[in-house]
Simulated assay, not measured.
Amino acid sequence: MSDTDPAGDPRADDVLARRAGLGDREAFAAIVDRHGPALARYAGRLLDDRDQVDDCLQDTFLAAWRGLPGFRGDASLRTWLFTLARHAAFARLRRWPASGSRPFVPVEEVVDQLRDLRADPERTSVESALRQALDVALRLLPPRQRTAWLLREVEDLSYAEIATVLGTSTAAVRGLLERARTTLSDALEEWR
């Protein structure tokens, strides 16, 4: 990790985790400050609804607060927090189809939206439009592929860390990333 990495020194995370596990609220606040933005990015790209993202983060940090007394450090604190966030987000994703609150997204509709974003003359920059197109294209990915891609490409986790978050092997992570990259490449063909 670089010196400018907001996740900071993993050894400092170990100290914060031990202190928070003993009930130190300031240490826990430092954990939230340090890792909250990355968890919010991750949850925000998995869940389309801001209220769902906020609830997911609240559930994640509540689970962390409750779990820190037993946190053994088998994985890094950062990896453990992403695992908790994945559990919270996937629980919401599983409920959506039953509740009808998240409509099915036809591939044709998403592809049309991708084209529309690029052709919109009111966009202030190509980068902004590309980022929006990527967000739309990410909706095509199943949650596990989206998780693998986000954790690798956005949060820069290693394959082993992603495997820990997903509860799978590094070989499975490679497969998830390959399928995600292929789908995104196809969806963003016009942006090349």
Score class of each variant (00 low, 15 high):
Arg11Gln: 07
Asp14Gln: 10
Val105Ser: 09
Val105Cys: 01
Cys56Glu: 06
Asp116Phe: 00
Val111Ser: 12
Phe61Ala: 12
Arg95Ala: 15
Arg146Thr: 02
Arg118His: 10
Ile31Gln: 03
Ser158Met: 11
Leu62His: 14
Pro106Leu: 08
Leu176Val: 00
Leu47Ser: 06
Arg41Gln: 07
Leu151Arg: 13
Gly67Glu: 06
Ala137Tyr: 05
Asp14Pro: 00
Gly67Arg: 06
Tyr159Val: 06
Thr182Lys: 15
Val15His: 07
Leu188Ser: 13
Phe104Ser: 09
Gly21Val: 02
Leu16Gly: 02
Arg123Ala: 15
Phe28Ser: 07
Leu57Trp: 09
Leu84Phe: 05
Asp54Thr: 13
Leu84Lys: 05
Leu141Pro: 07
Val126Lys: 09
Arg92Ala: 14
Phe28Val: 03
Ser128Met: 05
Leu117His: 04
His35Gly: 09
Ala91Gly: 15
Leu57Gln: 12
Ala98Gly: 13
Phe61Gln: 10
Ser76Glu: 07
Phe90Gln: 10
Leu16Ala: 13
Leu134Arg: 11
Glu109Phe: 08
Phe61Val: 08
Val154Gln: 15
Trp191His: 12
Thr79Ile: 02
Ala85Arg: 02
Ala148Gly: 12
Cys56Ile: 03
Asp13Cys: 01
Arg181Glu: 15
Ala30His: 10
Val126Phe: 13
Val165Ile: 01
Val53Gln: 15
Gln113Asn: 10
Val154Ala: 14
Pro10His: 05
Thr182Ile: 14
Asp48Arg: 12
Leu62Ile: 12
Ala64Gly: 05
Leu184Ser: 04
Leu84Ala: 08
Gln58Arg: 15
Asp3Ala: 08
Ala38Lys: 01
Gly100Trp: 01
Ser101Lys: 00
Arg115Glu: 11
Leu46Asn: 09
Asp59Ile: 04
Pro106Cys: 05
Ala85Asn: 01
Ala38Val: 01
Ala63Lys: 03
Gln58Lys: 14
Pro10Ser: 00
Pro103Asp: 14
Pro10Phe: 03
Leu184Gln: 06
Gly175Pro: 02
Arg34Ser: 14
Val110Asp: 02
Leu68Met: 09
Pro69Glu: 05
Leu184Ile: 02
Arg131His: 14
Glu26Pro: 00
